[in-house]
Design a protein around this nucleic acid. Structure first.
Length: 426
RNA sequence: GGAGAGUUGUCCGAGUGGUCGAAGGAGCACGCCUGGAAAGUGUGUAUACCCCAAAAGGGUAUCCAGGGUUCGAAUCCCUGACUCUCCGCCA
């Protein structure tokens, strides 16, 4: 969430940001409500502190009177304190309500887009930051979509997943399973080479962690919830990995902190089922290698570009046709200040599939997480957080299978040979 | 799962109802000392919120978390989390 200080000091910029996200003008009045309520909160705080201060003062006096044996005076003072206490309890409760309401309003305000983010309403308004300049691969008329290829070569089995679990839980088999493992290995190796520390986080997180990265309270329905233990299955490695630095005050010299993790990702994705979600296009469980960076505000946009280059390199090594989109204000995620999406061409489906999203959250996440660093003057500042997929597997697999099919079988890109142990699925 | 012990600042560690944001030590930072360093020595060394135009200064809260007792809680009581030891179970 945005900091109150930002909202107070840069009100016009924030409102302009909301407009860029296509908030109707009248809805931006929430900013004024926040500023007003913050005023109430601060007055309330002052009030409460004064009451408590007086109580503390009297209590000390009572102690002294008791020590001097002046019991009667002490007793009369006790009733004074009791009255104050009553007042302060009321004030405290009121303050709690105010803060709750204020939080609720703050949670509803998305991040302010970076000035370089283009205006726009929907995905159609995204700007192509890097187009695919070569010809897109043309497949023969009898080319198969990946779900048909899976059947032909026994690579994954959706019906089996239904038997074991339910729709959206593919069972990978044989060379399909091997290909998955190869990709994970490849992505992790590349990330480590690029200076990311490899992390193996838990796949279940507690409420605090889910709140830290913003899955709670709003997106509760998107996560699988183990109610008995009150734990959530992670929708992305971003959640446990970013929470590593929750409540930390880092040294400036520790930045950037670069971490990578492979995890399965679990998404309930209630709704949104339809024509385009066949096969591996949208599933409840998929594998992903994530990269996360905590960095200095002065450097975070440079880091953002480095992350883009890293993902780009992966695409090239996999020899997949891809393009990079700079998302417009209307299509960006709630927490993001700037996002690039990577899309890969799926030749049989003849569609672009989103396989990576690389975002700079600036201080939007770290404000909730309380991830700070101490600057040169000893001042404590919020760090910036960034993350991106590098890469998400299921759709990459779909594209690999479709684009590389030949009458002899499916060709595996050279970069993966040492991981798969085979060059061809046949 | 059963029984017991514990959780204090960056770390170690004292503290069993008032003057405790918290002794002492280590570490760290800055200064003195030194040709330079070590040793020695002096000072400083939590976070959040609030008041103040700002600085200075001040207030409040925080000794695992949440409740309670009390005029007053790190200290007493209850609940929960976690850690350790023993027993049980187990890949």
């Amino acid at each position: 969430m945005l900091t109150l200080k930002t909202i107070r000091d840069e009100k016009q910029r924030i409102i302009a940001g909301l407009r860029k996200r296509n908030w109707p003008a009248r809805q931006t009045q929430v900013i004024d409500q926040i500023i007003q309520l913050d005023e109430v909160r601060r007055n309330g705080q002052k009030n409460l502190d004064d009451l408590l201060s007086e109580q503390n003062r009297l209590s000390k006096q009572i102690g002294q009177l008791m020590a001097q044996g002046k019991k009667d005076e002490a007793e009369s003072m006790k009733s004074q304190v009791a009255a104050l206490k009553e007042k302060s309890r009321e004030q405290e409760e009121q303050q709690r309500q105010t803060e709750l309401k204020l939080d609720e309003l703050l949670y509803a305000v998305p991040n302010c887009p970076h000035k370089s983010v283009p205006k726009g309403k929907t995905a159609d308004d995204n700007k192509v930051a890097k187009a695919w300049n070569k010809a897109l691969p043309e497949l023969a008329g009898d080319a198969l979509a990946h779900w048909d290829l899976a059947k032909k070569y026994n690579l994954f089995d959706l019906e089996m997943g239904v038997k074991l679990t339910g729709a959206g839980f593919p069972v990978y088999r044989g060379k399909g399973a091997r290909l998955q493992r190869a990709l994970v290995q490849f992505f992790l190796d590349e990330a480590v080479k690029a200076g990311f520390e490899e992390i193996q986080p838990p796949l279940l997180v507690n409420e605090d962690s889910a709140r830290g990265t913003g899955q709670l309270p709003d997106k509760e329905g998107q996560m699988y919830h183990c109610t008995v233990d009150n734990l959530y299955l992670i929708p992305t490695a971003e959640v446990p990995v970013t929470n590593i630095v929750r409540n930390d005050i880092l040294a400036e010299k520790d930045l950037p902190i670069k971490m990578t993790a492979y995890t399965p990702c679990f998404r309930r994705e209630a709704g949104a089922w339809g024509a385009h979600v066949r096969g591996l296009n949208r599933v409840h469980q998929f594998d992903k290698v994530e990269i996360v960076v905590i960095d200095h505000p002065d450097r975070s946009y440079k880091t953002h570009q480095e992350m883009i280059r890293h993902v780009e390199k992966l695409m090239k090594k996999l020899e997949l046709p891809f393009r990079i989109l700079l998302l417009c204000g209307g299509d960006m995620g709630f927490a993001s200040a700037k996002t690039y999406d990577f899309e890969v061409w799926s030749a049989a489906q003849k569609r672009w599939l989103e396989v990576s999203s690389v975002s700079n959250f600036e201080t939007f996440q770290t404000n909730r997480l309380k991830t700070r660093y101490r600057d040169g003057n000893g001042q404590i500042q919020l760090a910036h957080s960034l993350n991106g997929s590098a890469l998400a597997l299921a759709r990459i697999v779909a594209a690999l299978l479709e684009n590389n099919q030949t009458p002899e079988g499916i060709k595996i890109p050279r970069a993966l040979w040492k991981y798969t142990g085979f060059k061809m699925i046949d």
